[in-house]
Nucleic acid binder design. Structure first.
Lengths: 203, 203
DNA sequence: GTCTATAGCGAGATAGAC
DNA sequence: GTCTATCTCGCTATAGAC
């Protein structure tokens, strides 16, 4: 069950996920936590403080998780494989938290928003650097590294939108599928990705 | 400028996008529309009614747009190209509306939710049918059609998250890039997509 | 550390004049 | 069709007893 603070946090995660942050009242969180709403303020300074706690710890855990998964992995293809695998797995295992991270940032005031975005940017940079490096070293097909990294990251993040923990496929199975899907597309022997320069543009 | 109802709708789209649905007050919408909040109720029965109007017309326009883009297109590769292109283009051109469609469904009561999801399911079925057909007819690499269709659709939808109308790339340029990215991956001569059956599963 | 009670405010929606 | 005025409600947060 955990400490009272953990119980409150867990209740908030479920409610923010189900009803959204702004539609969730402190009284809802209190009810699901088995306490009165005034008691929440002993553990958290405000409603936003709960949201910030959820968002920051999720982002920190994600950064720590991918670092641990990349530790000791040597060549760039295997690094990319490990990174995609870690990203998808984490998004299946922390589905509610990452969906909140995706849609409730508008609930943060300026300073908290900055802190969160700094963590998120550091995370995304790891992918962009990996892709750029793979292209520069000739292991990946060349192309617009920014767009490619957006395409890959958003596709993998979106797994959290449709993944069903009680469904046909496990998180490990899906992460295996995405790992192959992304890496097989990026590898040099596949078609070039720099289609853009050779396309007929309409405008 | 349009009718008062259109002005209200446009103000609501901007606010729901910027602040979220639940964080937006009728007084905010009224202020941005240049009227008093009571006047809104002459045009809309409730706040949810505004949200529902935005969501439904967006989904209907999306369905109509893709149908018009697919009209007369014959072979499956070109259909897939046209569909991806249409989807990405629409998500660049109606960025705010589709982001609201992605994150504010929890603001709908049961019946309105059902109506919206019916439209959305009809839309997504077009992609799934196209992918299944392409696989069955041997034009696309085989694989888990459901997961592939999720991967493709979510990747293309997410363009709305990062597209910048005043940025380096136009909507047409991005839709060209995604068209190539998806279709070149699906085509038969590329690597097989049924990696799943041949993977070593951990569980 | 949790409670009851409540302050202080702003929300969605309605009534009825013009 | 828009206005002013207001109803009713529930919100975040605080005070202070235990």
């Amino acid at each position: 069950m955990g400490t009272t603070k953990e119980v409150i946090k867990k209740a908030a995660i479920n409610l923010f996920y189900k009803k959204s942050y702004f539609a969730t009242a402190m009284s809802n969180i209190a009810l699901d936590s088995g306490i009165r709403k005034a008691s929440i303020y002993h553990h958290y300074a405000s409603k936003e403080d709960i949201l910030f706690d959820i968002l920051m710890t999720t982002m920190e855990e994600l950064n720590a998780y991918i670092d641990s998964c990349l530790k000791g992995v040597e060549n760039i293809e295997n690094q990319m494989r490990a990174a995609i695998r870690a990203h998808v797995k984490f998004h299946c295992d922390h589905q509610k938290e990452v969906l909140i991270s995706d849609s409730e940032l508008r609930g943060l005031t300026a300073n908290n928003f900055k802190s969160f975005v700094a963590q998120r940017d550091a995370y995304e940079k790891k992918f962009q650097d990996m892709i750029t490096k793979g292209m520069d070293q000739g292991y990946f097909a060349t192309g617009d590294a920014k767009v490619i990294s957006y395409a890959i990251l958003t596709m993998c993040t979106a797994v959290a939108h449709w993944f069903n923990p009680r469904g046909r496929l496990s998180g490990n199975q899906i992460s295996t599928m995405y790992e192959e899907l992304v890496v097989s597309r990026l590898l040099r022997e596949s078609l070039p990705l720099n289609f853009f320069e050779t396309s007929v543009l309409e405008e």
